[in-house]
Structure formats: structure tokens, C-alpha cells
Amino acid sequence: MPTAVRVAGVSKRFRLDGGADFLALDRVSVSIGAGEFVALLGPSGCGKSTLLRLVAALEEPSEGQVTVAGSAPGELARAHRLGVAFQDHALLPWLDVTANIGLPFRVAGRAVDRARVSALIGLVGLAGFEAAKPRQLSGGMRQRVAIARALVLRPDVLLLDEPFGALDAVTRRQMNIELQRIWSEQGTTTLLVTHDVREALFLADRIVVLSPRPGRVARELVVPFARPRDAAVMRTEAFHRLADELTDALGGGA
């Protein structure tokens, strides 16, 4: 499997207001193969979102190197080959669902592929809401729009930064089942940032556990469940055992 994303020995320091340095990531190395789904698991404040922002070229590493498809991470964004769904849905409030999902086409200077947009609206289960504005949608629906928008240009790399972080447990589980289905149809190289052990286990091929302050790779785990997965896998004993193991690994630093 060729490498799609390589994070090699990356450290990231932030200058705090007082002038002191804060080490968010300490010599982290992670690689993601083409077509692989990797979950970055860690407690809040472990620098996992920072790592995602480095891959998205929204931050620069203090040390080390990030390459995406062999070039600097900004190249992929400039070529309109990157899809990102943020924790905050980041929908444009003045555009309806169709126009929000079509936005990447317009930014790329291409004609909006209407068939592709309506296919994605169907895929994320929002048929009938094409003309709705973001404020008329529930939190879960907004995140579906954000995910559809991230997928619309068939990106080489998909970054998901706790896209369901703000949702309640029931909606979140439902969104996970849907994301599983959507991802199975697209098979895009994906990096998911989450603090939810079950979410990571259910969705990912491989889980990288980060320990907090400074963020370091504490553990890596290949998820053994075969694809396609459905919700039943979450009720198996192996799932529970791995979930407990990962929960322990998360608490290990504390």
C-alpha cells in the first residue's frame, strides 16, 4: 500500500501569551496508506487536532516534516484535492444545502456538477432538504452537509476533525453507522480525529493513540474487524475487549 500521508518526527510549539512555549506535539510520526482509514485517538488537549491542522496546511510544524501524496500539504489544498470536515460544521449561513455542497466546485473555478451534488445529498440522507438553510437544520444534519461538501470533489485525502463531537450520543452513533456506509462506498484515504474509543474502533482500519502534554504516539492498533462492518460488530465481545484496552491506554498517562 503506497503512503498517502506521512508525518515524520513532527513537533509543534505554540508561543503562549505570557511568552512561554507550549509543546503540543513531540516528535510524532504517523503514516497513512492510500485508501486507509486511520483514527487519531486521544483525550482532549493531546494535540490531535493540531496534527490534523498540520496535515491540512493550516499550521506549520516547528520541527519535522509533513508530506501528503509526496508533496507539501498545501499543494493538495491548492489543487482542490483535499476534503475536510471540521468540528464546527463551517457551513455558509447564507447558502442552502445544495449551494453549500457545491461550494468546492465554485472555489475550484469549475462548473458545479449538479448530478454529483444531488447524489451526495442522497448519500448523506438529506433528500428533500436541498433548499434548506443551515439554521433550519439540526446539528446532525449540518454535519452531514459538511461531510457531503468534504466529499464532493472526490478528494485524495479526507480529514475529519471530531465531526460529531458536538452531537448527542444517539445521533453520534447513528452518524457513525452512516459514515461507515458512506466511506465504504468512497474508500477515500481518511484521517479521523476523535476522543471516542468506540467511534474509532467502529470506523478505522488502524488507531493511533496520542498521550497528552506533550502529544506523543502512545500506541498503535490495527483494528481486526472485517469490512463491510455494520452496527452488530459493536456488540461483539472482541469489540468490548478492544474498547476496554484502548480506554486503559487513554487513561495510561493520567
Binding site: A56, A57, L58, A77, R78, A79, H80, L82, V84, F86, A90, L103, P104, V107, A108, L159
Partner: peptide, 8 residues
Amino acid sequence: DLMSVLGA
């Protein structure tokens, strides 16, 4: 951030 990752 969104516009930046979309390559705008």
C-alpha cells in the same frame, strides 16, 4: 480555515 483547505 474552510476556504484555505478548499484551496481558495
